[in-house]
Structure formats: C-alpha cells, structure tokens
Design a protein around this nucleic acid. Structure first.
Length: 161
DNA sequence: CGCGTTTGACCGGCGC
DNA sequence: GCGCCGGTCAAACGCG
C-alpha cells in the first residue's frame, strides 16, 4: 500500500503554523468532508469507530514567550535564542477514545489533572530510542466527545510499519 | 520475560 | 517567602 506512509500529523512544514500566535486555543475546525480521509483510513484501519480529525494548531518555534504575553521586555542587546525547535501541533479529534495508532508506538509516561478541565491530561512519549517526540492528549472540557491531541517535536526514526 | 501501563511524589517556574 | 500549576520521572504491577 503505497508505501507505508504513516504520515504522522506533524508535517515537516508548518506553513500555517508560523502565522498563529502562541495561544492554546487556535484549534481550527475544518469541515468533515474536506479532510483527507486517505490518511485517516490508515488510522481507522483496525478501529471501528467514527472519529473526525479536523483541527490544527501550531505553536512557535523556539520561543519561550508562549506562556503569557505581555511583558516580553527584551533587554537591549540581551537576546537569548534557544533553539529547541519544538514543533507544536494540536489536533482536535472527534472520538470517544483518545488513543489512536498514528503509525508510531507511544508509551504513556504520566497522567495529570488540570484545574481548567474536569478531565485528566495524558502524556505520551515515543517509544523509539533517539526519538524524543512527545504527545499530549486531553479531552475537551467544553465538548467531552472531542479529544485534543498535541504533538510536540519531530520523529527522527524511520517509518515504522 | 519484556514492556506497557498505572499512581505518586518530586521538581521547577512564576505569581502574589 | 510561600503557594500554585504543570510537567517529568520512578517504582511496581499486570499482561502478552
């Protein structure tokens, strides 16, 4: 099949990404019919449930001013650029389950309950050595039937069947 | 037997 | 200075 193209949601390019501010509410709602279900098909392959993924959000690149804007007082001549290069991509998926196989193996490394949400937040990490990609999954507090999956980082290991 | 999963505790940062 | 929040790691257990 076409060459196993797991095609993770984290595209190498963040075209629209650099345009978005660094807020955690930039979930774009695409239409259910305009999304490429081809890729999703691989996801669903093996899972019998109706889930629609239509939301993309990207954070900043190597920026630490994402916490709260406001005082980004840049002291003259004192610019510390941290090149962590962490791509942040958030997907809002309509599904009852939050764990879907996107073609990679994930190992849960923590569960936390955020105060702003009655639902717990799940932290996942790539099981592949050398791959420091992280994934955060949380249920929407406004729409429990929706799940927000945030991918942080980029995979460095070859495609895994 | 291996590892994936689970819960708790711990730490750091920042706010007040 | 202390409190709060979020995030990560560690140990243990269960399951495959």
């Amino acid at each position: 099949m076409s060459g196993d193209n797991p095609k993770p949601p984290h595209s190498p390019e963040s075209d629209f990404s650099k345009q978005w501010p660094s807020e955690l509410s930039q979930y774009l709602n695409f239409d259910d019919d305009q999304w490429s279900y081809d890729d999703l098909d691989s996801f669903v392959s093996g899972h019998a449930f109706s889930h629609k993924t239509e939301a993309i959000e990207v954070g900043e690149v190597g920026g630490s001013s994402t916490h709260h804007e406001g005082s980004s007082s840049i002291n003259d001549g004192d610019e510390h650029e941290k090149n962590e290069v962490k791509d942040r991509v958030a997907f809002k998926t309509k599904s009852e389950i939050e764990i879907m196989d996107d073609g990679f193996k994930w190992r849960k490394y923590g569960k936390k309950m955020v105060k702003n949400s009655p639902n717990p937040r799940n932290y996942y990490r790539c099981s592949v050595e050398g791959c420091s990609v992280k994934k955060v999954v949380e249920r929407d507090k406004d729409d429990p039937r929706y799940v927000i999956t945030t991918y942080v980082g980029t995979h460095t290991h070859p495609s895994y069947s």
